[in-house]
Structures are given as C-alpha cells and as structure tokens.
Amino acid sequence: MNKMLKNLTVLLVEDEEKIRNSMGSAMEAVFNKVILAQNGDEGLKKFKKFNPDIVITDISMPIMDGLDMASGIRNISKDTPIIVLSAFSEKEKLLKAIDVGIDKYIIKPIDMEELFEAISFLATSKISGANIIEIGTGYAFNKSKRVLIQNDVEIPLTKKELAFISILVKRLGTLVLHEEIKNTVWIGEKVSDAAIRTFIKRIRDKVGSNLIKNVPGLGYKIETNF
C-alpha cells in the first residue's frame, strides 16, 4: 500500500455508528489520523477545524447530507479530495455529485480494499501534486498543512520556525536574504544577527544540518538536491 497514506489525516463522515466505528478502526491502522463525524454539519465544522487531507462521506445523513457538506467544503477548498460512499445509484445523485466536484463515488456495501486503492490513487495524483513537495533527500513539505516531514515523520516546529521554513520552501533552490527573513519571520520586531544565528542553529538541531544551506553574509536557502 502507498506509504504516503500514513502521513494523511482523513475525515470520515457517516451517520450509522457501527459502520463509522468499524471503518474508523480499519483506517486508523493505515492513516496518520482519522477524524469521525456523524452528519454533514459536524463534518463541515471538523473540516474547518482540522483541515484534513481527504474527506470520505456518506450521502444520506440527518441535519446535512454528504453532498451539501461537500458543496460547503468546496467553497473552502477546491483541491481537497472527496470520496462519496452511498447506497444510491440513481442518476440524479450521481449528477449532483459531479456538480459538487466529487473525486470518487463508491457504492455500498463498501469494500475497504477498493476504498484504500481509491485513496492511494488520489494521494499520489491529487494530494501529492497539490500539497506535498519533495524538498531534498528524505524531506518533504505539506503546503496545505504547512508541515515539514523527514523520512515520513512530521517535525514539530514553532510558529517562527515554520514561517522561516515556509519562505525557504516557497523560494526553493533560491537564496533568501537576511532582510527578507527578518521581515517575514519577525514582523514588526527588532532582531539581531546573533539571535538569527541562534534561531537557525535551533532549527538545524531539529531537522538536521543538511537541509538549510547558509550563504555567509547574505542569507539561507534549501537546495533541491543534496
């Protein structure tokens, strides 16, 4: 199975408790994090809160159905893959799913192997292309979640550390000058060159010495290849 799946956060929206818990348990063995919701309204709120990489939803649910929730998600994110699970096979439902921008439609009862294959395909083709970029040997950056990954493990970073890494990733392979780093990371604050050097050393202690290249007297960059 695609090893990239273990880096993903998945939102599963299903109103039937037994199905929700059963599928959730199976998914926890495959994905980094599985978030459960019991209707479209709760699903939309959890999407806004957790910003998952992929959404898997039933259609017929109380309060808000899966397609209305998917439409709400599309207003927030055009790129997040959405897989619909449903017993429906009527033309109207399929057409509405297409209008909403559903990436995959799977008819119940659900074959978990088929579901994982669909997620694996979307992870490779859509999520990887849109959100996760390789930034060096063993390193990747999730642009939507703004997370640095080393050898498939997320590296915890402070807000300022993340701002620094983000600007280097945005300008991958290009030198980012000290002044731009100051203006981006320490907005409106005064910071000394010594404090910046200490800051960079702390990041290197977390991520390893090979990722961030220093150009003495000028700034820093991330090379695309080591």
Rank of each mutant, 00 (worst) to 15 (best):
K104M: 15
M4V: 09
S25F: 14
N21D: 13
E154L: 08
T80K: 01
L157P: 13
E114M: 07
K48L: 14
K221G: 03
E154Q: 12
D103V: 01
N21W: 04
I56A: 03
L94P: 06
T174C: 04
D53M: 02
S71P: 04
M23Y: 12
L218R: 15
M23I: 13
S60R: 08
R202Q: 12
V13G: 10
R171N: 15
E189Q: 12
A195W: 05
I35P: 10
Q38I: 11
T57R: 03
R74I: 00
L95T: 02
K48Y: 05
R197T: 05
M4C: 06
S25N: 06
V30C: 02
A123Y: 13
V55Q: 03
A70D: 09
S166H: 10
V34Y: 05
D15N: 15
R146V: 00
K143M: 02
S125V: 12
V10M: 06
K213Y: 12
T158E: 07
V207M: 00
K48E: 15
N51I: 14
V30I: 13
L95K: 06
G173E: 13
A87G: 05
K104I: 06
K45S: 05
E179Q: 11
E28D: 07
I73M: 04
R197V: 06
V185Y: 08
V147P: 03
V55E: 02
D79K: 00
S60D: 12
V55A: 01
N39M: 04
F31E: 04
P216A: 05
L177Y: 13
F164S: 07
D99M: 08
